[in-house]
Design a binder for these strands. Structure first.
Length: 424
RNA sequence: GGUGAGGUGGGUGAGUGGCUGAAACCAACAGUUUGCUAAACUGUCGUACUGGGCAACUGGUACCGAGGGUUCGAAUCCCUCCCUCACCGCCA
C-alpha cells in the first residue's frame, strides 16, 4: 500500500513511476488525492464539532456536581442538537476513509525509475550471466525421466496420494533435498540471517500485510474451516513477525531466514511449463528477508543479489540474472531481480530466485515503522526478500546438468550434507 | 471438545459512568554525581489522523482486543464476535 503522505508531496514522481506499469491509468492518483483532500476537510469540521461536544459534556458534569439541574438540562438540549450533526459527518468521514483505503489497496507499488519499461517477460533485462555451460553426453535426459528411472522422485505416487504437482521424493532424492535445505540455511546464517521455523499457515491479517491479499486470493490454499492460508512463501510469516511494531533505528537491518514448504494453487497454469519439477503446488524453499532503513534498502538489495549469486556459483550452475521490466515486476515490488539457471537437458532457463525491494509498500500495510534516533519520529521501514533458493528447479538443474552415463554427480558443496557423491 | 478466568501504554498492573490518554512500579532514554561499574537523584517517556507555523513549537480529534448499543458523557454499563491463559478430555 502506497504511503499517502508521500503521494501528497510527490504526486508527480508517483505518477511517473506508476506510469511505467503497462496500461496503468495514473489518474487514480489524482482521484485519490482529491478524495483525501475532501476527507481532511470533513475531519476538520468533524473535529471542531466533537470538540464542542466534549466541552459541553464537561460543563454538564460540572453543573450536576453543583446541583444546578436546570442549567445542565438546557445544555443537554444543545448537545443533542450537535450530536445529530456529528453523526452525519462521522458517517461521511467513515465512508471517505473506507473508499480511500480500498483505492490504496488496489494500487500496485511504484516501479523505481531505473526499472526498464516493458510489458512482459520478453522485456526483462539480462544484467549478468555466469557459470559453466554443462556439456551433456548423447542420450542425456530431462530430469523427470531421470528422476523416475533412478527412483528418486515418484510423480505417479504423489499424484495418487494428493494430486499433480505434489511429487514424492524418495531415498537419495529426499536426501539431496534435505542437503540443499541444510546448506542454504547454513550459508544464510553465516551471512548473519537469523534462522526461523515459522508457522506454515497464516491468518488473514498476515496475508494483507505482505500483499497476498486481496490481490492474489486465488493463489493461496485457503483452509476455510479456520480461515487460515497455507503459506505460499516464508516471506509471509517472516515479514509479518514485524507487523504492528516500531523497531529501533539502530536495530536495522533485521535479517531473517527460514526454510518452509510453499503451497501455491497455480490456478490457470497448465501445459508446457508444468512438466516434472518445473511448476508445483508444493515445493521447498529457503527464503531470506530483510527489514531495512529506507536510505539503505537499495544497497541491501544489491547485497542480497550478490549473496544469491554466490549460491548458484557454488553449485556450479549456469545462471543469468534478470532485472524484471516494469510490466513483469509484481504488484508489491518496486524492483525485482530474477535468477534463472539453465537446465541443459530440456534446454530451458528455470527461475530459481526472485529478489525484491518492496520499499515501504508492505511496511505501510503492516504498520512496521522505525523510530528515528535523531528526530524521535516514526517512519515506515523498507522490506526486502529473496529466495535463497527455491529447491525443485535447483534439483532439476542439478539432475540435468550433472548427469553422466554412470548417474547424477552431486555438486561438491553438497556432498558433506548428502553423504554420497553420486546418484545411480 | 468441556469448564473457568481474562484481554488497559515496551512490561507488570491500578482503574466500575464525568476531575482518566489513563495511577504506581519496572524497563528505556537524557542529565547530575562518579577513577570505572554500580547506586542515588532529576527529567523525558503511547499511537494514528488533523489544524496553525519555514521551523522550534503549539492546538484539536480518535484509540484501553474488534464491532455495535445505552448516555449529554463510556476503559468503566449492555449485546455480538475474536483472541489469550488455566484446568479437564483427546492426541503427536
Amino acid at each position: 500500500m502506497l504511503d499517502l503522505p508521500f503521494l501528497r508531496q510527490h504526486a508527480d514522481e508517483a505518477k511517473k513511476r506508476l506510469a511505467k506499469r503497462p496500461g496503468y491509468d495514473t489518474s487514480v492518483i489524482d482521484e485519490l488525492l482529491a478524495a483525501d483532500d475532501e476527507r481532511r476537510q470533513i475531519q476538520t469540521q468533524l473535529d471542531a464539532l466533537l470538540s464542542e461536544q466534549n466541552i459541553l459534556s464537561k460543563e454538564i458534569g460540572k453543573l450536576y456536581g453543583q446541583g444546578k439541574k436546570e442549567e445542565a438540562d438546557a445544555i443537554k438540549e444543545k448537545s443533542l442538537e450537535l450530536k445529530a450533526q456529528t453523526g452525519e459527518l462521522q458517517k461521511l468521514h467513515d465512508e471517505a476513509s473506507d473508499s480511500i483505503r480500498s483505492m490504496l489497496l488496489l494500487i500496485p507499488n511504484l516501479p523505481q525509475l531505473r526499472v526498464a519499461t516493458g510489458k512482459s517477460a520478453e522485456d526483462n533485462v539480462t544484467v549478468k550471466e555466469g557459470g559453466p555451460r554443462h556439456q551433456l553426453y548423447v542420450g542425456a535426459r530431462p530430469h523427470w525421466e531421470l528422476a523416475t528411472s533412478l527412483g528418486i522422485i515418484d510423480f505417479e505416487t504423489g499424484n495418487k496420494i494428493t494430486g499433480s504437482g505434489f511429487p514424492l521424493y524418495v531415498g537419495k532424492g529426499a536426501r539431496l533435498q534435505r542437503a540443499l535445505i541444510a546448506w542454504f540455511l547454513d550459508k544464510a546464517t553465516a551471512q548473519g540471517f537469523t534462522e526461523y521455523m515459522p508457522p506454515l499457515m497464516v491468518n488473514e491479517d498476515s496475508g494483507y500485510g505482505t500483499g497476498q491479499l486481496p490481490d492474489k486470493e486465488g493463489q493461496m490454499y485457503h483452509v476455510t474451516a479456520d480461515n487460515l492460508y497455507l503459506v505460499p512463501t516464508a516471506e509471509v510469516p517472516l515479514t509479518n513477525i514485524y507487523r504492528d511494531t516500531i523497531v529501533k533505528e539502530e536495530d536495522l537491518p533485521i535479517k531473517m531466514t527460514a526454510y518452509t514448504p510453499c503451497f501455491r494453487r497455480e490456478a490457470g497454469s497448465y501445459g508446457k511449463d508444468v512438466r516434472g519439477l518445473n511448476r508445483l503446488h508444493q515445493f521447498d524453499k529457503v527464503e531470506i528477508v530483510q527489514i531495512e532503513h529506507p536510505d539503505r534498502s537499495n544497497a541491501t538489495l544489491d547485497s542480497m543479489v550478490a549473496y544469491v549469486e554466490s549460491l548458484v556459483v557454488e553449485l556450479g550452475l549456469q545462471y543469468r540474472i534478470l532485472q524484471l521490466c516494469s510490466g513483469d515486476t509484481s504488484f508489491a515490488s518496486s524492483i525485482t531481480y530474477d535468477f534463472e539457471v539453465f537446465a541443459a537437458a530440456q534446454e530451458k532457463w528455470l527461475e530459481v530466485s526472485s529478489v525484491s525491494n518492496f520499499e515501504s509498500f508492505q511496511a505501510n500495510r503492516m504498520k512496521c515503522r522505525y523510530k528515528s534516533a535523531e528526530t524521535g519520529k516514526n517512519h515506515l521501514v523498507h522490506t526486502l526478500n529473496g529466495s535463497a533458493l527455491a529447491l525443485p528447479r535447483i534439483m532439476a538443474a542439478i539432475m540435468e546438468n550433472y548427469q553422466t552415463e554412470k548417474g547424477i554427480v552431486v555438486p561438491d558443496v553438497l556432498r558433506p550434507f548428502c553423504g554420497f557423491h553420486i546418484i545411480d
